[in-house]
C-alpha cells in the first residue's frame, strides 16, 4: 500500500505534477462534454426539422 502523503507530495514536485494532470483531465473532459452536447443538440434539431419537412405538403417544383 502506498503511503498517501508521500504519494501526493510527488517528491517535492506536487505543485507542478498535479496541476499538469488536473488541467489535462479537466480540459479533455470539458471538450468531450461540449462536443457531445453540441452533437446531440444538432442531431435532434436536424431530425425534428427533417420530419417537419417530410410531413409538410409537397410544394417543391
Amino acid at each position: 500500500m502506498t503511503d498517501w502523503s508521500t504519494f501526493f507530495a510527488m517528491g517535492g514536485y506536487a505543485a507542478y505534477v498535479w496541476p499538469a494532470y488536473a488541467i489535462s483531465v479537466v480540459s479533455l473532459l470539458a471538450l468531450a462534454i461540449a462536443s457531445w452536447t453540441w452533437m446531440t443538440r444538432a442531431e435532434r434539431l436536424a431530425s425534428s426539422s427533417k420530419s417537419a419537412e417530410e410531413t409538410a405538403p409537397e410544394t417543391k417544383p
Binding site: M39, A42, L45, A46, S47, S49, E53
Partner: peptide, 24 residues
C-alpha cells in the same frame, strides 16, 4: 477518434439543418 466522430456527426447534422432551412 471518438471526439472526431462526435464533432463530425454534429457538423453533418448542422449542415443538414442549414440545407433544410434554406430549402424551406
Amino acid at each position: 477518434a471518438a471526439l472526431l466522430l462526435i464533432r463530425m456527426r454534429a457538423e453533418i447534422a448542422e449542415r443538414r439543418l442549414r440545407s433544410i432551412r434554406l430549402g424551406l
